[in-house]
Design a protein around this nucleic acid. Sequence first.
DNA 1: GATGAATGAGTATTCATTCAT
DNA 2: AATGAATGAATACTCATTCAT
Lengths: 228, 228, 228, 228
Amino acid sequence: MINETHCPVGRWLRRKEARPAELIDAALDLFVERGYAATKMEDIAKRAGVTKGTAYLYFCNKEELFKAVIREALLPRVERGEALLEEFQGTAWAAFETLVREWWTTMADPRLSGIPKLMCSECGNFPELARYYKAQIIDRTLKLMLAVLERGMASGEFRRLDADYAVRVLAGPLVKAMIWKHSFGLYEPEPTDYDRFLAVYFDLIRAALAPHSQDLLSQGTLLKGAPQ
Amino acid sequence: MINETHCPVGRWLRRKEARPAELIDAALDLFVERGYAATKMEDIAKRAGVTKGTAYLYFCNKEELFKAVIREALLPRVERGEALLEEFQGTAWAAFETLVREWWTTMADPRLSGIPKLMCSECGNFPELARYYKAQIIDRTLKLMLAVLERGMASGEFRRLDADYAVRVLAGPLVKAMIWKHSFGLYEPEPTDYDRFLAVYFDLIRAALAPHSQDLLSQGTLLKGAPQ
Amino acid sequence: MINETHCPVGRWLRRKEARPAELIDAALDLFVERGYAATKMEDIAKRAGVTKGTAYLYFCNKEELFKAVIREALLPRVERGEALLEEFQGTAWAAFETLVREWWTTMADPRLSGIPKLMCSECGNFPELARYYKAQIIDRTLKLMLAVLERGMASGEFRRLDADYAVRVLAGPLVKAMIWKHSFGLYEPEPTDYDRFLAVYFDLIRAALAPHSQDLLSQGTLLKGAPQ
Amino acid sequence: MINETHCPVGRWLRRKEARPAELIDAALDLFVERGYAATKMEDIAKRAGVTKGTAYLYFCNKEELFKAVIREALLPRVERGEALLEEFQGTAWAAFETLVREWWTTMADPRLSGIPKLMCSECGNFPELARYYKAQIIDRTLKLMLAVLERGMASGEFRRLDADYAVRVLAGPLVKAMIWKHSFGLYEPEPTDYDRFLAVYFDLIRAALAPHSQDLLSQGTLLKGAPQ
DNA sequence: GATGAATGAGTATTCATTCAT
DNA sequence: AATGAATGAATACTCATTCAT
């Protein structure tokens, strides 16, 4: 589908300092809005305030620009998340909240919040990039969450769960919210209240992870009437 | 690729009635795999066992074919979900499980499971279609879930929640799983075990919705060590 | 431009009696209205009340149908004109009028009046046919007019003129009127009054051909004030 | 075909300003020769010494290029004709001759002489353009001729005529000659001698318009043998 | 560095023509 | 005889990429 053109050294050549970032910003906006194929190099250049030819001074082709967009954007966030948890001292739940809130701030940046949807859409056309993104962004993030979950389970703060799959459930609402924001969210009559969403999310997940309800349930004393 | 044998009989074996569905199937596969723009009409036709020109006998252009793909696929599922709940007699939790399992079977059909990701990717390029999809598929499905939630809350089976936003949280893991299957899921070393995923999902959500944990929590007796 | 496909015997094969004429009529209408290229075989067939395939039972391809349209239509008219003049007994002017009026009746038939414009438009793409049309329709018609002119000149009824070129002048208004009717005439607020046109034409041409004005003019007595 | 030599210099010698005119010239040639539909954009570009894509930098599609061809070409001629007559001092006949000769020089330019036939052929497919051409080129030209005719009639230099229709007759031979040149004229064994044509035309029209022949004719003395 | 005119490979779409029924 | 589903060559148009200035 996509030609593997051979580019010169480096992912992109720096000439003037600001240009690459401006181009990446412009490209991100348009890629998110229209998708990779429907975005023209000329439009990206125009939004970045330069002309077509100039874009090629910094990125040898459209595909490399796309890769730069994906690669540059989220990695610092993941690294910051890892650093945060590395030295975190509080309860597992506090760690979970910290992690989620850190992640959540990404939503606030319109530059960054569109990337998951974008990468997700283009998975099939950029296998190599998809693997990179999955390994460097997704898997590392899930691993953080998994660590928090296991810590809480070990300490008795959370109940025992199938942790590998539980993190997928826990991450689901967050991922969906990010993708939604850049897809159907565009057509919602009133914008999502993300604070409210997050409050409900924490409320539900805290209950879902709490150990006692499970213990009590297993004793069969409190929820006799509940469905089997 | 399909029907490559040039048997003089085959050409006329298929009927006018079968073509549109064959083309939609082929188009769905390719649209999901490559995205709208990267999919060529000729490839769709080829996969459907016909030539370029034939596709245009049934769909006046690529966009109309795309719309047909989106419009015809999931609506019956939603309607079946509505019918199921209409006459449902059991507990709210049983209704919830029924609804989710019905939805989940859509995952099993590789024809259908790719549509959400596809529509999500193309939201920006087909606003009208996106509105249609949101109104006819998403909103109707969320409405069903909302009704179940409110029923359970009214009967005391579920605790009191911000229902409008709670359904977004509840739907999140399911939506994310469907999208994942057609994006990063392609690059996972081992395939997702959906039964396991669903078991964990139900386990967590049941706990999240159960009324007693909340009551007990509010008494402050059981979860002393829990985060503030 | 146009493929010289090799057709079976005959210009077209007669099967059922009425079909060819119906197809030619339909084709003529559409060719005149839209031009050769912009006219689809399917539209011709539809207007003739049959389907695409049927048209090919009678004309092996579009080009042959076009040739039939041109060939069949006007030749009888020319032949009738030749027959009329062959045995004509009156004055040269009467012969001229007869010839022009005969020609003029062609205008009344919407089937036939569009052919000159059509053939004229397609001259470049059908050289062979253009030569045929020129030889069989145009040249023969001009030859008739030339004969009348020379007869009148010989008898003194018309003044001496450069006859070869004079016929081109005389024919001009008539040809232009026919072409106009099927081109810009479509956009005229009020339709042309052809009787009035013809009256003016005869009035002018009779004066133009009359011998005495010329004789008198050459004597320099009557038109002293006229331009050199 | 043109500029086939791949000299690296040539490519940039031409300027943005020159391109549109070059493309219009090339397009005019081909449109006249083959008609609108049978002319390929690529051929136009090739004749203009550029490639397909370049043509689309200047004209957003084939139709717009066609419109430009029609719109830009003849209007200056009409305007020049109007200016010429505005300040004309001589006799009506001299004005008529001036007008016709001015028009006639258009014939000499192979660029321009093909336009009437072209527009005439495409009348049915470009109604809006046809109305524009009729209003801006044809009607304005006929109006000029009408003014001359009425001037001559008022001064007694021309006899009384049905002027509205007389101009159609007078214009006929000229229009027909222009159309002929680009249609059947292509297949004439010997080329038309336009000077000779024009001489005969003036000779005939002068006689047709002269007042005395009419006066004398009405006395019934000079043309006893003429038709009723 | 930056420009933007030019390129040409690639895709959507049309329509004359075929041929099994 | 007639049908109309299917074909595939042909053409308008796009856009990533190049390169002389």
